[in-house]
Design a protein around this nucleic acid. Structure first.
Lengths: 193, 193
DNA sequence: GTCTATATTAAGATAGAC
DNA sequence: GTCTATCTTAATATAGAC
């Protein structure tokens, strides 16, 4: 039991540099040479920790992102306050995780190139749970279930789009403005839309 | 003059398969072997048309996208009707260009990996002109200039985000819903936001 | 303008010493 | 658990015939 825990822990140490690489370069743009440099390990050492190569590295990072979603982003939705307050708290966590929009989303990066087919199920699952939690906050606020689902799609569309545009325009204020707009945008009455 | 025209035309023939590759695989995910297969040319023939290699191919595709933006997307904003009608027409052209959200945006794909630094200026220029044209439609409708600029950012955020999410969730309705929402979203009164 | 053949470099991956 | 050394394949790019 202790061995299994330490075995997982040894992989977790290398997750931050791996996340940084895959989110910025995408799966096809990351070479083992880049990974070796970023982690400070040799190629052979990398295969010791990740016998499955790049695929297993991505899987490990995805597992960490799964934890982050549950324990950080979605946890922010659980506290006190009304829907707008809760969504605002989630926005703060998101802003931090993406460095105010300077760093891309690895989920989006993985949907390009040869990685798409391999990792789409995990990405889909992560996004689905994210949207489900946002929709739950909105329905708890009295919103119709179908509309809440549509609004949760709007939320992820806004976050992903803001990341793309902020990076392309090299302007973090685009990302910050989008996040600040989000709580009101999601909670607006359907008559104005 | 005729020779120069035919020289450019010979490159234009190969733009569609190149666009398809770069938007789906990104710069780092596209190999010359893939390009040779998609165009039906040998590697050496590719270097005859594009002595600069992949970089020159991307530049050529970007020039075509520049033309598409001007002659198709922005041309839809020039006709008759109010702002919402014009923006709706642009949405139709966009839906077609992206195959109802099934195909990624090459501009977004180029902002990942080793291509980012090389092509960011061109991508930035394209997005800036796109936003400028949308903002112009809104200000012609009587909207404040600063607000119109912010709304044009919203527009590109929505388009880019919808492309990401629709592809990740394998659900084109996300993209179509976003485009249908867009005209009203951009023209809404600022009191409700 | 297209091809075959080839040069060169870098990629993913493994063997085996320490 | 990390390393050096190596294997194999695939990458970018060019030379030169047709």
């Amino acid at each position: 039991m202790a061995k299994q825990a330490s075995k997982q822990a040894s992989k977790q140490v290398h997750v931050p540099p791996l996340l940084d690489l895959f989110r910025q370069y995408g799966y096809d743009g990351v070479s083992l040479a880049k990974i070796a440099q970023a982690t400070g390990l040799g190629k052979a050492s990398l295969y010791h920790h990740f016998p499955g190569g790049k695929d297993e590295m991505v899987e490990t990072v995805l597992a960490t992102l799964d934890q982050w979603l549950q324990q950080t982003a979605l946890a922010a939705l659980e506290g006190e306050g009304d829907a707008q307050t809760r969504l605002g708290r989630m926005g703060d966590r998101i802003s931090t995780a993406y460095s105010q929009g300077q760093k891309p989303c690895m989920l989006a990066a993985l949907m390009l190139g040869s990685a798409k087919d391999a990792f789409q199920p995990q990405v889909q699952n992560l996004l689905r749970r994210w949207m489900g939690a946002i929709a739950a906050v909105l329905t708890a606020d009295g919103m119709d279930s179908t509309l809440a689902q549509e609004r949760s799609e709007e939320a992820l569309v806004a976050i992903q789009g803001a990341l793309i545009l902020a990076r392309a325009m090299a302007d973090t204020t685009i990302f910050e403005r989008t996040l600040q707009r989000l709580p009101q945008q999601l909670c607006r009455s359907s008559s104005s839309a």
